[in-house]
């Protein structure tokens, strides 16, 4: 049995529950059996910890449900085993927020080139260190801090 830490309603009337991350898979399995589908995965950087917010949608009841998970070591269990839709959403969160989804088999960058340094939506990402992307004739992308080696 999973333990709900907080249960609240947001401004739009959507129910948002907060879970411990070890209960996540168990709770999500139950929500899936109730007819919820994964709509989106969002990440928030709260400086001392990261939050991962899952939006679930029930087509039968036309009801949304938000599930919030806090993580202090930027690791969260992956939901690819439950919903295939979680695959690219989790890759996006890994790419931009640096959240590591444990159990994801193909956790690569999805939007930025593979060689990119850092995760740009983190609060501690340094925007002054500009990175430049170039492409060789084979189609492989290279990232450099040197302005002359890319755009």
């Amino acid at each position: 049995m999973y333990n709900i830490i907080a249960d609240e309603k947001d401004k739009g009337g959507m129910r948002v529950i907060t879970l411990d991350k070890k209960d996540l898979i168990e709770a999500m399995t139950e929500f899936k059996s109730q007819g919820y589908y994964l709509s989106s995965i969002t990440g928030v950087d709260m400086k001392d910890h990261l939050e991962v917010i899952y939006h679930l949608h029930n087509f039968d009841k036309n009801e949304y449900l938000g599930v919030k998970v806090l993580t202090y070591d930027s690791k969260v269990p992956s939901l690819v085993g439950l919903w295939k839709a979680a695959d690219w959403d989790e890759r996006e969160q890994y790419d931009l927020m640096g959240i590591i989804f444990e159990g994801h088999e193909n956790l690569r960058r999805i939007l930025l080139p593979d060689e990119w340094v850092g995760h740009p939506l983190r609060k501690d990402y340094d925007l002054k260190k500009v990175q430049y992307v170039s492409m060789d004739s084979e189609g492989n992308e290279h990232v450099s801090f040197d302005e002359r080696e890319g755009w």
């Binding site: 939007l111 930025l112 080139p113 990175q131 430049y132 992307v133 170039s134 492409m135 992308e141 890319g150 755009w151």
Partner: peptide, 10 residues
């Protein structure tokens, strides 16, 4: 975007 720029060039 930076990733599109090499494609635009090509």
């Amino acid at each position: 975007t930076k990733r599109m720029a090499p494609r635009v060039r090509r």
